[in-house]
Amino acid sequence: MASDAHGADEGGLVFHPMDQFIVKPLFGGDTVAWYTPTNMTLWLGFAILAVIAILVLSTSKRAIVPGRGQSIAELAYGFIYKMVEDICGKEGVKFFPYIMTLFMFIVCANFLGMIPTAFTPTSHFAVTAVLALMVFITVTVLGFVKNGTAFLGLFWVSSAPLALRPVLAIIELISYFVRPVSHSIRLAGNVMAGHAVIKVFAGFAAIAVISPVSVLAITAMYGLEVLVSFIQAYVFTILTCVYLKDALHPSH
């Protein structure tokens, strides 16, 4: 390895890009049982507090002319409400609290994860897989409850030539079941990638010559990650809306 060749030169160059994702018990101990409060629990709790601060505390005055905090709350509300209404139509509005929960949770977890030394729950596949599976199961169950077997028309592309339809049905079926996978890995992968890359650049900062470049790179990546934090939450939410629309109006 490199350190064998250069010896003491790179003694300080240590990469642990993945250590920041380790789930540790919060109050000591080694085993992580299902109920153990971990560092993840702590940051999930912070996410709850952030959601409450943004949406509940800031609107406590119920001002007709909103202040700064209330404007943010109203902006978030209007943003998601319009998205749900535009994509899913009027029937989708009753899923608005559910979608708003997903969006606010992901946004708060992502942004809190941008604090140095913080833990980012959304970088774990277990977390995003649960979120994506919840969406997947909701959409599938809702589709069959609302449309019965007509929901299967989603896979039978009636606008295609008859000979092609079985092939397309297989492709559609595969793409339907890949949805939760890509849905969850997209979010976790993006967040994890950004954090890991920042950590790698931070490892380079140990070398005096490279450290200014490294610090600049960290700064640039940080800006990109702030953007990605929001965009991934937006994409997750909008894809949820698109999938919900499939369940509500399965016509192809």
């Binding site: 299902w34 996410a47 709850i48 949406l55 609290p97 708003m100």
Partner: peptide
């Protein structure tokens, strides 16, 4: 199991807060 448990707790809390109070 730990992550999923605490995530579900978080989501339920946020959902209740949003659907009962905030929204």
């Amino acid at each position: 199991p730990n992550q999923i448990f605490w995530l579900l707790v978080t989501l339920v809390v946020i959902y209740l807060v949003l659907s009962r109070v905030a929204l």
